[in-house]
Nucleic acid binder design. Structure first.
Lengths: 327, 327
DNA sequence: TCCAGCAACTTGAACGATCGAATGATGCCT
DNA sequence: AGGCATCATTCGATCGTTCAAGTTGCTGGA
């Protein structure tokens, strides 16, 4: 099984190297008959183009890079992991492979871009966890590096392609469900203002209550993400609500725990439909992560063409109902 | 910011291309003074070697491939994700990058190897989820492809390097803890015999009981992984045990649920210390996944040298104790 | 004095693909 | 028949690096 190059194939098919290359890259310029002969030779020899050689000539690597969060435990990390799974699945049929990198913060991530671009000639980046004043997108845009973000450009103009899940629609859906099932004192447990995602999730709750004419003022609390902090933040609130919409499953779990400890029954709905929600029977808003990943790959095709205008996609989450067991 | 190649650096430093290459790859053959001048030029120009060109010449890509499980929800999938995080972290300082691929089964995975090897010239593979009669390791070994497995070669001889966690030690630790805290009727909930990991976890429990002279016969159950199946499999057992060691957190959660429903108190210890265990306050055996990933990278260095003999590493898990809340 | 031996560096070729321009073959029009 | 456009294919150069084989200058031993 010696090395089979484009020259080997050319010799066997009785054509030149370039013709073989044309069969693979621009089939329309090759006569039908020749094309078939070449393809036959390719199959017979088990030829596969060397990415390294192709990459050196074209500058394209057919590799896209995605950041993976540093190893840490936790409930919410799994969301990005599921997105990553979807991305790998969707990239393969499109002829792309996913390469991972880590970074401690945005500045470090930008330094990594430089490294990866110059030494690996990456074709594109998929960014996650976009936030207000994100330095990464402007850096990439300035240098003309193709990229797609999972998460809209909070506050910045829509100059690039992105996919996002309608966070507000998710909490709105949860709130509406609680209204439909008879609840009238519905609170919200979220994160401190300033994060785009967190604010959107709060808005979904607030606007749904407002539209239904149900008062919500004073029925919300904000804290850092986490079970403990969620439980602590919600204790005061429990006296005045009988249902809670939460910005994450961690917070929801904290709320459930606090409710159980205080002895006050409270229906809780989380966000992200993590494994934990499944395990404890917690209703939760589910993001279509696999679909989001697939759309990112779709958009990337357009971005790599350079010709196509940037496109934006907002996906609808869904509500997964479970009989909320006390934790 | 035009392209800066090894020739640019050479010109600026007043030496030849090869000398620059030597500074980077075999510094000892270059005179101190020259070396510094070259390094200065590299820094000034921001030069970074093109992986594609290097790869074409050397056949090495500095890329290692790892399988990522297809997108699915669940509690146990997170274990491999955490391993993946650790691997990416550990690979970067060693000058390697991680590339992902998916595969539906072993046969499909082997087909993917062929693809990846011929077109991307991958340096090595890291395999996870090894099992009895694993076709993947023999395929790779036959072709001389460097690889390391996370998981020992169940049943097969130790002809390659691997890292594994001592599963039996984990359940032994859990069992011993239960004995120390006064339990005498300790059961085991695991998977059907045949899986190396599952059998090892059962053995740890059985041998510890035997060593302590505490009877365990008839106190174990086996079922497919999952909360529901775990709950179903353990109901009969609950009459005769007051503590359970489980092969996974999913099973442990099922056991907890069944115990709560039956009204019989039962101390439960899970395995893998997943986010779910954290969330519900379940004690669990924790695998040192970050460490395992780092060791895999270490071993890979030896494997890529070809000279070094295969090495094996067995890591000790630890027991994370929590006040087991009823679910 | 001469040349072997060494250290430090340089030069040409090669890896395997693609790009641009050139070549040969074919058909059509005048 | 000659000219010319069109299509299919070939040829030579090139991407950036490393390997193998020089070249140069210097030291020391016979």
């Amino acid at each position: 099984m010696s090395k089979v190059t484009i020259a080997t194939v050319a010799e066997r098919a009785g054509v030149s190297r370039q013709t073989v290359s044309n069969v693979l890259n621009t089939p329309q310029v090759v006569r039908e008959e020749t094309r078939e002969r070449v393809l036959e030779a390719i199959a017979a020899l088990g030829y596969r183009a060397s990415q390294a050689a192709r990459q050196m000539r074209t500058g394209r690597s057919r590799l896209i890079a995605v950041r993976i969060e540093p190893a840490r435990d936790g409930i919410n990390g799994s969301v990005l992991d599921r997105f990553l799974h979807g991305l790998t699945d969707a990239a393969a049929p499109a002829g792309y492979r996913v390469m991972l990198y880590t970074a401690t913060d945005d500045t470090d991530e930008i330094a990594t871009y430089e490294n990866l671009l110059t030494s690996y000639d990456l074709d594109a980046f998929v960014l996650t966890s976009t936030h207000h004043g994100d330095a990464r997108t402007s850096w990439l845009a300035e240098r003309g590096v193709p990229f797609v973000t999972f998460g809209r450009p909070w506050g910045a103009p829509d100059t690039h392609s992105w996919v996002d899940v309608d966070n507000a629609a998710g909490t709105a859906m949860a709130t509406r469900h609680l209204l439909d099932t008879g609840h009238r004192r519905i609170g919200f447990l979220g994160w401190p203002p300033g994060s785009g995602v967190g604010d959107a999730r709060r808005d979904g709750w607030a606007s749904t209550l407002a539209a239904a004419g149900v008062p919500g003022t004073g029925l919300d609390a904000a804290t850092e993400d986490g079970i403990e902090s969620g439980a602590a933040a919600v204790t005061d609130l429990l006296a005045s609500v009988d249902a809670l919409v939460c910005a994450s499953d961690s917070l929801a779990l904290g709320a459930l725990r606090a409710a159980r400890e205080s002895g006050r029954p409270c229906t809780v709905i989380g966000f992200d439909d993590t494994a934990v929600a499944q395990a404890v029977g917690l209703s939760s808003v589910s993001q279509p992560l696999t679909q989001a990943a697939a759309r990112c790959i779709d958009l990337l095709a357009g971005v790599l063409d350079r010709s196509a205008a940037p496109r934006q996609l907002l996906l609808e989450p869904s509500l997964v109902l479970r009989q909320s067991a006390a934790i």
